[in-house]
Structure formats: C-alpha cells, structure tokens
Design a protein around this nucleic acid. Structure first.
Length: 428
RNA sequence: GUGGGCGUAGCUCAGGGGUAGAGCACUGGAUUGUGGCUCCAGCGGUCGUGGGUUCAAAUCCCAUCGUCCACCCCA
C-alpha cells in the first residue's frame, strides 16, 4: 500500500512548530481583548455566492483561486478564501449589527488555489478583525494602532512598514476610472499584456503591475487620491492626522489598491522586505458598502487580516526558539505501577508540572538518555532501591549538583525549594 | 495558470549507465543503576511514482505527483 501525502500547498503544523504558534495565538487573543474585540468562529465552508458577491467577480481570488465544489444537493459551496465575507454573513444572520460598534475577531485557515511559493500556501491561516457600524476616522486609526502595537509586542516592528491610501467612495472611483481610462487609453500599446487586459476588466488594478514600462507610464497618470470626493478626502486627512498624533509612521501609496472589490476609503497594508516576494503581512481597509451588498441595511465596516505563516516567519527570524521542555522525567525499574502511581500523585498536586514518565523501559542508561533528550530539567529515579526505601533519586540534568535522595513523603517540599531557588537564581 | 531548481536512510546530502554511500539521529556495547563527551558495533533505502531506452537505469528519455523559488495575484 502506497503511503499518501498531504495535498499540494496544505501543510501539517508539526509539534516542533506548535510552541511558536501557541505563543503567537496567545498574544493575539490577549491583544484583541485589550481593544474590546470578541472572538467569533464561523464555518470554513460557505455558499460560493457569498464570496462572489463580496469579493467581486473580476478578482483573481474569485476567478481562479476558489476551492468551489457542488454539494450533494447541487448547491455550490466553497472553502473560504478569506474571513470578512463570512463574518458579515454571520453578523447579519444573527442580528449582531445593532447597536453599532460591533467589534469581532477571528482566526483560522483560509484556502486559495494558487501555486505555492515562499510565504504562500493553499491552506494558510489568517487572524483578522472587523468593526461594524462606525464610520469615524478614529476607528481606522485605532485599528492601525492595534496593528502597530502588535508588531512592537512581537518584536518585529523594525521590519514592518505601513502603507495607506484612500480608494474613495463608489462615485469617486467611478469618476476616477474614467479619468484613468482617458489617460491610459491612448497609451494602450505601451502597456504590458496584463495591464491591457485590465483596461476593460479592472483599470485600478493596473497599478499592481510590476512591468517597469507600465510603472513609468503610471507615474504621470491621474491619481485616485486627487479624485476623492469631499467626504472621502476629509476622512482620509483625518485618519492621517490621527496617525501623526499617535506617532505612527506611514507612507501614502497612491498605487495601493487591494485585490478585493469591497474596499473603499481607507486601505492599508503592513509590509516587510524580509520575506521574499510576498511582502504583505497584514492588510485591510474600509468596506462601507459590503453589508448592504450582502443584503443588510447600509452599515459601514472596516477590518484587516494578517497572515499567520508570514508573521511566524518574521517572529522566528527575530525570536529564535520556542520550546516547552518538560520539567521532569520520571524513570525507574519494573514494575511500572509504582512509577505511574507516583507520577499521578505528583500531577494531582502540581497542576503546572510538565512531567514525562518513561514508558519504554530498558536500561537506566537508555532511560537517562531519553530523559536528557527530552530536554527535562530533572530526572526522577524510582528504581528497586528507591522503591525499597521509599525515596526518589533526583538528578539535575542541567547542572553539576550531585544526585540527591529524597524521601517520597517530602518530594513536594523538595520540588518547591528547587524551583524557588531556581527562579531566584535566574533573577526572574 | 506559466517558468526554473530539486525529490537517494528518520534528517542533511554525496553518487550522473555496471554490487546503494557519508555525517547526524536511532539501537546495543565499552560502563550488569545514570544522560551529555569519546570509541566500537549494529539497525535502517523497491533511489517520489509509472512507463520507456539498454545486456544492464539511482544515473538517460517521457509522463506524473510532491517540494522550493519566481511570475500572476495575494495574507
């Protein structure tokens, strides 16, 4: 029988990586709570229409990256490619949008059928936040402040830069689209193939082109930011002033459009240069029309999502190692019953103790070897001799102190003293 | 979807038509109740998979899957 492999671009997260994931997850959930966000958990599968409506028919995500399939009853379903659409759906379905000011966060896997490369997988993990019903610039600014704080707390702030832009309101974009077409139309022949195609499908996206010739032409192109209506312009100015006031540095990038159609007004992207071609670590923006598009009453919204794998790459480059080695490794001689009994008794009284029992047996040499490999601080020995005189031999595997013999009855005191001294010794 | 690199032991990799290798890891011994350092021995592979060429294929050819990197696009 041939062994099967995981499907392309979908990776196991192995025990060796779990400590880093949990470290990041704990920090994220704590941070969300500090800003008054509540967690929501929604299905990985939604009706395909939810995403085609929210993200937009002409987008790459919908056109070629969705994991869509037919359910047994003929419904077209889809593995979620992003989180916002589902959160909006859930908020509408359960009437969460009243009163205004709902703040939600979510975390979990997303699926996009793309060719994998550095920082990109077909199943990847995002953590995101959404705020509903508030249109004040302060909302945008606070979300950005949350991100900024996160990078500082993760120790990666110096590797991440903020870019922002305003896409204006729907009418603004419509007017701008005309202006852009008027400029680029005559230059059609000088554009790269993709950009020429986008003249029809989605002219704004031409700004994403990496073709040098196209970028050169775009330098002189009309800028969306100059076509903002009064509302959008005032909003954007207010957001940047709030960022200035908080000392958050940013770069206004007039070419920053986003891949999903639902964005309007403020869009932003946190990027890094340390991750290869995939520089975006976290991105988001306003989506004031999205709730209405999904069948709700007009309700402004704003949110962002960050890519956990990319974030972890940065954190690992910075932070080195994450480990949770056991505190103690219990070994001894047969029969195992006394050893198991001792381990359970210790676990009863020391809920925080990470205690591994040797279940493989064999020579003391082999067991000590495993104890060492486990990374445990202490080896606890319950051999024939110890069982006979009701003691435990304790050896510090990380130090030079001679092995101690401790009466089983006073094990608690011994452990308490040992770990207390240890804490003091390390000045923690 | 397009292009390129790479798939050989658990891991990192050598070998590019003629008997499948090294280091690390693992197991045992030197040390009959003591890890780490050292030395010795051992275990471990249908060379990603399927086809083809050949007397002979890990090696050459084709296909396919996976992986990495880039493009497209995105977190």
């Amino acid at each position: 029988m041939k062994a099967l492999q995981s499907v392309r671009g979908m990776h196991d997260i192995l025990p060796a990586d779990i400590a880093a994931w949990q470290w990041l997850e704990r920090r994220l959930s704590r941070l969300m709570a500090r800003y008054g966000f509540e967690e929501i958990r929604i299905p990985l599968v939604e009706k395909t229409e939810l995403f085609t409506r929210a993200i937009g028919q002409g987008t790459d995500v919908v056109e070629k990256e969705m994991y869509a399939f037919d359910d047994r009853n003929g419904d077209s379903l889809c593995l979620r490619p992003e989180g916002t659409a589902g959160v909006v759906r859930a908020a509408l379905q359960h009437g969460l949008l009243n009163p205004p000011g709902l703040k939600l966060w979510y975390a979990g896997p997303m699926f996009r059928h793309e060719r994998p490369q550095k920082g990109r997988q077909r199943q990847f993990h995002q953590t995101g936040v959404e705020v509903f019903g508030l249109d004040a610039p302060a909302v945008d600014a606070e979300l950005i402040a949350l991100g900024s704080r996160l990078w500082r707390e993760l120790g990666i702030a110096e590797h991440i830069e903020l870019e922002i832009n305003s896409l204006g309101d729907r009418d603004d974009r419509q007017r701008y689209r005309q202006a852009l077409l008027a400029y680029l139309g005559p230059l059609r022949d000088q554009l790269d193939d993709d950009s020429r195609r986008r003249l029809e499908s989605n002219p704004l996206r031409i700004f994403d082109s990496k073709a040098p010739a196209t970028q050169a032409l775009l330098k002189a192109a009309p800028r969306l930011i100059d076509h903002l209506g009064e509302g959008a312009r005032a909003h954007f100015t207010a957001v940047t002033e709030l960022l200035d006031a908080q000392g958050i540095r940013y770069r206004i990038n007039p070419g920053l459009v986003r891949g999903l159609d639902y964005y309007c007004r403020t869009v932003f992207e946190w990027t890094t240069r340390s991750l290869g071609a995939q520089g975006t670590v976290c991105a988001g923006g306003r989506y004031d029309d999205l709730v209405e598009v999904q069948g709700g009453k007009p309700t402004p919204g704003i949110g962002f999502a960050m890519g956990m794998e990319r974030l972890l790459e940065l954190v690992k480059g910075q932070n080195g190692r994450f480990e949770n080695p056991p505190h103690a490794y219990l070994l001894g001689s047969e029969p195992a019953s006394e050893r198991l009994g001792l381990a359970e008794a210790l676990r009863d009284r020391w809920p925080e103790l990470r205690l591994v029992t040797d279940l493989q047996g064999g020579s003391f040499k082999a067991q000590f070897k495993r104890a060492d490999r486990s990374g445990a601080r202490l080896a606890l020995v319950l051999g024939d001799q110890e069982m006979a005189d009701r003691t435990i031999s304790v050896k510090d595997l990380k130090g030079d102190a001679p092995q101690a013999s401790v009466a089983q009855d006073s094990m608690d005191d011994w452990l308490r003293t040992f770990f207390d001294d240890d804490r003091r010794g390390h000045g923690k």
